[in-house]
Structure formats: C-alpha cells, structure tokens
Design a protein around this nucleic acid. Sequence first.
DNA 1: GCAAATTTGTTCGTATGTATT
DNA 2: CAATACATACGAACAAATTTG
Lengths: 259, 259
Amino acid sequence: MPEPMYRLIADDLQRKIETGQLGPGDQLPTEIELRDEYQASRNTVRDAVKWLIGRGLVETRPGQGTFVVEKIDPFVTSLSTGVESGFGGESAAYASEVAARRRVPTVTPPRVEIQQVDGVIASELGLEQGSAIVGRHQQRYIDDTPWSLQTSFYPMRFVELGATQLIQAQNIVDVVRYLEERLSIKQVGWRDKITVRPPNQNEAAFFKLPEDGRVAVFEILETGFDERGQPIRLTVSIYPTDRNQFAVVVGEVPDDGLP
Amino acid sequence: MPEPMYRLIADDLQRKIETGQLGPGDQLPTEIELRDEYQASRNTVRDAVKWLIGRGLVETRPGQGTFVVEKIDPFVTSLSTGVESGFGGESAAYASEVAARRRVPTVTPPRVEIQQVDGVIASELGLEQGSAIVGRHQQRYIDDTPWSLQTSFYPMRFVELGATQLIQAQNIVDVVRYLEERLSIKQVGWRDKITVRPPNQNEAAFFKLPEDGRVAVFEILETGFDERGQPIRLTVSIYPTDRNQFAVVVGEVPDDGLP
DNA sequence: GCAAATTTGTTCGTATGTATT
DNA sequence: CAATACATACGAACAAATTTG
C-alpha cells in the first residue's frame, strides 16, 4: 500500500518549498514540465498541485502559472479593548491599531435592518424569539482593502425608549456612550466568543477570498452587558483568517508590540 | 461564460443540504447515481463533491459513500483565565471548563527539551538568539480524544537559579505558583496572540484531521510577565478549529453559559 | 472466515475552453 | 492574433476500503 503518486510529487514539491529551494513568489514548473519531470500524467501532477493548494502552500493563476504563496503581514486586533467600546465605536474602534502601521481605515455608513430575532442572536441578547431588534451592518476597509464585516444588534426597545439614532443609516461615533447619554444604559463589561468557520458566499465575495474555500473566517460574537448583568448589544464581526490575528491582554503587561 | 457543470451540480446539492432535503448524517447518492442524475461523467460529479468537501458541507468515506457532515459540539476555552494560570497549571488548567460538560480531561507527562531559542520564541521571551530554553511538550485529551498540543517555554536561567523541576519529565501542577515559591518570580499578567493556520504533519496526525487539510488549527501564544514587565514564560497551544471555541471576558459579566 | 458486491480513490489519455502574455 | 498555462470535461481501468451474503 504505497503512497499514491500525486502525494509523492506533492511531498517532493513541499520539501522544495520548505527548504527554500522554491521561495515565496517563485513560479513552479508548468504542469507540462512537471509531467515530464515526474513521469506522470498531467492530471496526476494537477492532483499534486491541488494538494499543495489545500495546504496553503501554492496558488495557481490561469494563464500564468503556479506560484509559492507569499505570507501576508497580519493585522492585529485587540479584544481586551472591545470591538465597539472604549476609544472605539462604529467609526473609530480600530483607529489606534491601524495608525501604528500608518494604514488608513475607512468604514461604510451602516445598512440598518429591523427584524425578528432568532437562534443565536436571541440567546445572546436574552430576548424571546420574535422580539424586534435593530441590526446595523457595516463594511470596514484598511487601505481600501476589505478588512471586516460587522453587524451590531440592539433591542428595538432601545429605540422606543428614545435612542432613535439607532435606526438611522448614519455612523454613530460611539454607540456605547450614546446609549449611556440617551438612556442611561451603561456597559460595564463584555464577552467575546471566537470561532472559525468556512465563509459564506457573501463573505467570500466581499473579502475576495479564493473560490476554493480554503481560507476560513473568524466569527467573533461580542456581547455587552450593563450593571444589572443584562445584555445590551451584540456585535458580530467577520475577519478572514489569512490576514488577521487577535490579542488578549490580562493583568499587567508592558506596552510593546501591541497597540 | 456559463458556470462550469461541476459547480452547477455542487450548487444544487448545496441547496438540498441547506434546505434540509439532505440532513446532517444523511448519505448522498453514490457517484454513479449522481452521474446518471446529472448526465455528467463520474469525474465531474467527483469534482462537485470535492467542492462541497472544501466548503465543509460533506465528507466521503471510502467504501461507504458521501455524507452530510454533522456539526461538532465545540469545546469552549476561556482566555481570560489563562491557559496555564489561576486554577490551572499544566495538569488542571481546563478542568473546570470540561467538568461542566462531564467530560474527562487527561494530559500526558511532558516531553522535556532543552534547546537554543530562535525567531518567535526568542522575541516573545525577550531573549537573545542562541540562549538556552526549556521546552515542555504535552498532549491533552478530552474523553480520550485528542484536544490540544501544548508546549511551554522557560528561560534555562530559571533552572540554574533553582527551579530544577522544570527539566523533569513530570507534571507540575501549577508552574506559575512553582516559579513564585521557588524563585519569587510572580506572574502579574499575560498576553495571548491568536492566529489560524493550516496544520503541519505532526498536528494533522495527532488530531486525526482529514488529510485534505481543510481543517485549520488555532495557534495561541500566551506570554506571561512578572512585576518588572519581563516575560517569564511562553505557552504555545494548538487546537483544531472545527471543534474549539474561545471566550474572552472583560469587566463585569454575568455567569451564564461560560465557565 | 471468506468471497462477492458496492463505493470511493488513483491514474491515465484525450479534447476543448478560458485567461494571460 | 498567436502562444502559453491553467480549467473543465469525458471515458476507461484498476486499486483500496467497507459492507454484505
């Protein structure tokens, strides 16, 4: 029961990549050349290349060739600061982190939706199925490249109590502060849940992810709570895993490296 | 420029899965049946199935068939508590989280290595390239299924100063406390960095991940600091992304759901 | 326990389409 | 427009894993 040939070819190419014989950005031999080199059929070398693609080691460009992937300089987001709190808010949450690298962040005005809660959102916000909520969807960019998709949900009750800006399609600089000033609802803590899953069609399109679905996305649920322990907001953020990194700071830690 | 046929087949099958026409665990028609149903060749329906595998929607079992994947009940790990601190330590860090689900955690005795630092480890521990460090590698299981690979690194200097248990291949119940009692080195905070990457061969084998490399792993770097802001340890933990979830709690948050 | 049937996995050859240079 | 390189599609044969009789 020997290893199949496409695996042997893939392992050999992988070795050449890991030993630096093929560096980032380098072009691999063409499928025809590989076919002759390994004495296999073109379909078999294609299987080998697909294996390497699945490992995230190479990428193919139609009409050009197959290339060793170049690693992306990751962007770091701190969760200890809160996606939407502190210095943050819908428009400026990440300004400090971005500034350190001289990158230019932008955010779209929110698309506002009013809907009935279900499933996860209901359970996170402690609402009954069918209650009305406000959803504010935004797209965030860094240097004009798509960075994250973010949606914040609030109970519709907040609007009825007077927080009418929640249903307007305009940025709110700091929602947490707005809720405090308008409704005296004060956020005293929050909780993040971090998962990783394959992107849906929307996300793959927005982030321009390769169609083969090998790049997964982070899904971060951040629930904010008031003094009485009641959930007051839920922010769902999506980030591609190939260009993002998260940091958590607990206790006393020196200021180095992280913003 | 129409959509290729394998995509049309994949989209149709995906629709059947998402509408519940094919539920979790259900077997898809065999490749031969799909070939007849869609009037395509077997290789083309196989391409469609591969597409769905890449999306994490189905899995194939040689000799059996193709099945809709069943979602795994995820393990939740809190980062606000520290992978190796508080109630934790090498042996018990996750006991509380696991206990809530009546799962049985186990951990192997550490494999101890002494080596010279390089790259990331040196930079995280603030050591010069070539300094000596101790690495303690452990494998952690839940209910006998592989759960995480964890390695903690400490400066060799700690051993020379008297923390000799660090180079013994036995569990240390709470390393943080041991360092404090033995060397008066007190951890006052820590920082986690969370990334996602494809598994290496070691990791894929240990976690029994599907060979096609579609399941990525979390890599969590946790650096602990003492009162003077000096790094005193680096713990690198690896978890498969398909069965793990992380939580971060900041400020006052009610005790519900999470340990 | 073994043999047959079923199902997916690997490999080849070939032809044609699409993207890029 | 032509040449090059990867993408899609078909047909065929045999191998390997699993279940069934």
